[in-house]
């Protein structure tokens, strides 16, 4: 009986010690502390993010055109797709750290 209680107390202390060794839990609030840093990071990212999707889409369209001899229709078709993909990139980058 007494032994059981000792064991339970030991387990509790062990758990507390393990918790302490793992370090304090970081709160969500602390993440927002570097919000200026996040803002600059986002500003750096967004412009390129949009253009890159467009470039990839046009390159894919151009390559498919060369493959199927349909120049320039597939490239033109890929332009709106690339634009939407760029916007998707933007939304994902902006919404990630809410």
């Amino acid at each position: 009986m007494d032994k059981d209680r000792d064991k339970a107390a030991f387990e509790a202390r062990l758990k507390a010690a393990e918790e302490a060794a793992r370090g304090p839990k970081r709160e969500r609030a602390q993440k927002n502390a570097g919000s200026a840093q996040r803002a600059i990071e986002l500003a750096m990212r967004l412009g390129v993010e949009m253009v890159a999707a467009m470039v990839i889409a046009v390159v894919i369209g151009w390559g498919l055109d060369r493959l199927f001899h349909t120049s320039p229709w597939l490239m033109i078709l890929m332009v709106p797709v690339g634009m939407v993909a760029g916007l998707r990139n933007l939304l994902r980058a902006a919404g990630k750290d809410k």
Binding site: I56, R88, N89
Partner: peptide, 22 residues
């Protein structure tokens, strides 16, 4: 699906161009 694939493929481009251009 094509939009998602292009969005995924654009990652290395945006990653490299950003650093290089800056």
């Amino acid at each position: 699906v094509p939009i998602e694939i292009i969005s995924y493929l654009s990652r290395p481009v945006s990653l490299s161009v950003r650093l290089f251009a800056n």
